[in-house]
């Protein structure tokens, strides 16, 4: 297996990688879905569309937002299902027993998984070190991790919005990030919450997590500093090939990463490692 062992090291916070790209969707459907205001690049959705439409994988496992901050894990087999799940996620959507059952009973061979760094770690372990005979190791074809600074404790955060801004969970339509602010769109308008204020509602466990980019994934993706772009980090030959193919077939536009975006992601990755050391030392 051509897989580089993962070493978590603040000196080298991005871990092992084969390539870094600045990517932007070239797919009209994705652009339309994201709308003109969206600051991300839509690269992950585009790659997933490429994978499914070119028959590279049979299905993708993604989180779809149900309402407000709540989500569900779905196994998407069609472009429509994938498009429906696009957009940023603000809470973690747990893997459940149902996922394994569906994966084993469904007629799917190769599956691409999109998750957060913690889920990427789990998937990598399932794939490389199957501790259980019922593990779906053989079905894991590609692991995509989204950059993650931490996830919200959903109830806590929603309650905060309700109490401070009088927006109830049912009214929230979308949440996006803009500079230092969270922009919460709701049925009656929008509110802007300083990120600093929202941090209080991060899950405690996330504070001890050292992984910002998803070191265990084949492919890591997150918003670049440059608006409208996704930063892609490929960690395996397979991921590299897929990204290039998606670009060659017109799903993606690739360019060299700009220095600022790169600097920020390295900084954040290091920050998360140091933060985890600090908090971890209190629970050992």
């Amino acid at each position: 297996m051509a897989y580089q062992p993962v070493v978590i090291d603040p000196e080298n916070p991005l871990g092992y990688y084969t390539g870094i790209y600045l990517a932007q969707t070239a797919d009209e459907r994705v652009k339309r879905k994201l709308g003109p205001d969206y600051k991300g690049g839509g690269a992950v959705t585009s790659i997933l569309l490429y994978l499914v439409e070119h028959g590279v994988v049979d299905a993708v496992v993604v989180a779809r937002r149900k309402k407000g901050l709540y989500g569900e894990t779905i196994i998407a087999k069609t472009p429509e299902e994938i498009l429906e799940a696009t957009g940023p996620k603000w809470s973690i959507v747990p893997y459940t027993l149902g996922l394994r059952e569906k994966l084993t009973s469904m007629d799917v061979g190769r599956v691409a998984f999109v998750g957060l760094p913690c889920q990427a770690q789990f998937l990598r372990q399932v794939k490389m070190f199957p501790l259980m005979e019922s593990d779906f190791s053989k079905k894991i074809y590609l692991i995509i991790s989204l950059f993650c600074m931490g996830t919200f404790a959903v109830e806590s955060f929603l309650n905060y919005i309700k109490k401070s801004y009088h927006v109830s969970p049912d009214e929230i339509e979308n949440i996006s990030i803009n500079g230092d602010e969270l922009v919460v769109k709701h049925v009656r308008g929008e509110i802007r919450i300083p990120i600093r204020d929202a941090l209080f509602h991060l899950q405690h466990g996330c504070l001890t997590c050292p992984d910002y980019t998803g070191l265990f994934a084949d492919l890591s993706a997150g918003k670049a500093l440059k608006p409208g772009f996704t930063l892609l980090i490929t960690r395996t030959k397979l991921a590299d090939k897929i990204v290039r193919e998606a670009s060659n077939t017109g799903y993606l536009k690739l360019s060299e990463p700009d220095e600022e975006s790169l600097k920020i992601v390295i900084e954040k990755a290091r920050e998360k490692i140091m933060r985890s050391y600090k908090y971890l030392s209190t629970v050992l």
Binding site: P94, Y95, G115, L116, C118, Q119, M132, T151, Q203, C206
Partner: peptide, 18 residues
């Protein structure tokens, strides 16, 4: 992890129980 408040709810454990 769980009672210590460190769980983030990723679901890895439920998929790891024989």
């Amino acid at each position: 992890v769980v009672l210590n408040g460190l769980c983030v709810g990723c679901g890895a454990c439920v998929l790891s129980c024989p």
